[in-house]
Design a protein around this nucleic acid. Structure first.
Length: 287
DNA sequence: AGTTCCCTGAGG
DNA sequence: CCTCAGGGAACT
């Protein structure tokens, strides 16, 4: 082991777009049409809605649909007055649909018992950075609070992405992490996209050529699509709605690999801090 | 645009 | 024992 390696520090990840998309797909297999017969909250810290209000709202409601908005899960609930159960998984949040007989995992903060009595939806979160919230449906496609978020990275056109990127002067990674710029990217997929595009995380976004910005758009899409196909990245705590780990961490080329050799050129990958977040990149392959 | 804080487990 | 990581909100 190199002397440097010990001081490089560890990196931990949160559920980003591919992980939340995988969870949403899993929940679609078990939730729509099911009614919640009882809800329990044991850690109010993870709630943006008062606990008694949330418990009262979901009791008797039926899950009509499961959507993803950036890193948020939206459970559209049907009742006299329809509402969304909005979930952000923070760093270590897990939203798992499992047999009621299954022992709840440690740090389970909320449980939603489904009709039939055999299945339960459980929210667990070691670090308690995640949040659950009840929002009335108002006719819009998503809750108002989420309307300030930027476009979805898989929906924005190349031309719009290039224009948006070059209109700003921040370091490009800071922009990719800014949920008002794009919704859904986090540390893993920002670093992986920049490596694939050959762009340094600290590059000034307005100085990136149109061609290289378009390459970043392509890289970002392919990384996200491949990650979804592999069920997301399980670096520390992430599991899908059925409790299964993803496998895209095996395909990471820079994230969590600072101090190791670049898979492209063989030089040692560097670590820096951008936008307050640990950043891994290749000083040779990324300019 | 950078800093601080929330929280826990891992590692020194 | 102490320090640190991280997303996002709140602050400067």
């Amino acid at each position: 082991m190199l002397a440097d390696e010990r001081t490089l520090g560890k990196q931990e990840s949160m559920p980003e777009l591919p992980e939340v998309e995988t969870i949403a797909r899993g929940l679609r297999a078990c939730l729509p049409g099911r009614r919640i017969v009882r809800a329990t909250v044991t850690q109010p810290r993870v709630l943006l809605t008062p606990g008694d209000e949330l418990v009262r709202a979901v009791r008797g409601a039926t899950v009509a649909a499961v959507d993803r908005h950036g890193k948020h899960l939206l459970l559209r609930m049907e009742r006299r007055k329809p509402f969304w159960l909005v979930v952000h998984l923070g760093m270590t949040g897990q939203f798992v649909c499992e047999a009621a007989s299954q022992e709840p995992r440690p740090h389970t903060h909320a449980s939603f018992e489904l009709d039939g009595g055999d299945q339960v939806l459980r929210y667990s979160d070691i670090r308690q950075f995640g949040r659950l919230e009840i929002v009335p449906v108002n006719g819009a496609a998503a809750p108002e609070r989420l309307a300030r978020l930027g476009p979805d990275p898989l929906e924005i056109s190349a031309a719009a992405f290039v224009a948006r990127l070059r209109a700003r002067s921040a370091r490009v990674k800071a922009l990719l992490l800014d949920q008002r710029f794009l919704r859904g990217l986090g540390n893993i997929y920002a670093d992986e996209s920049l490596f694939r595009a050959g762009i340094r995380p600290s590059a000034a976004s307005d100085l990136i050529s149109r061609a290289r910005a378009a390459a970043l758009w392509h890289a970002m899409r392919s990384v996200l699509q491949e990650a979804i196909a592999r069920g997301g990245s399980s670096v520390s705590d992430y599991v899908d709605a059925a409790g299964r780990a993803g496998s895209f961490q095996e395909m990471h080329r820079v994230y969590g690999r600072a101090g190791e050799d670049c898979l492209n050129c063989g030089r040692m990958l560097r670590r820096s801090i951008v936008a307050g977040r640990g950043t891994s990149y290749c000083g040779t392959c990324q300019k």
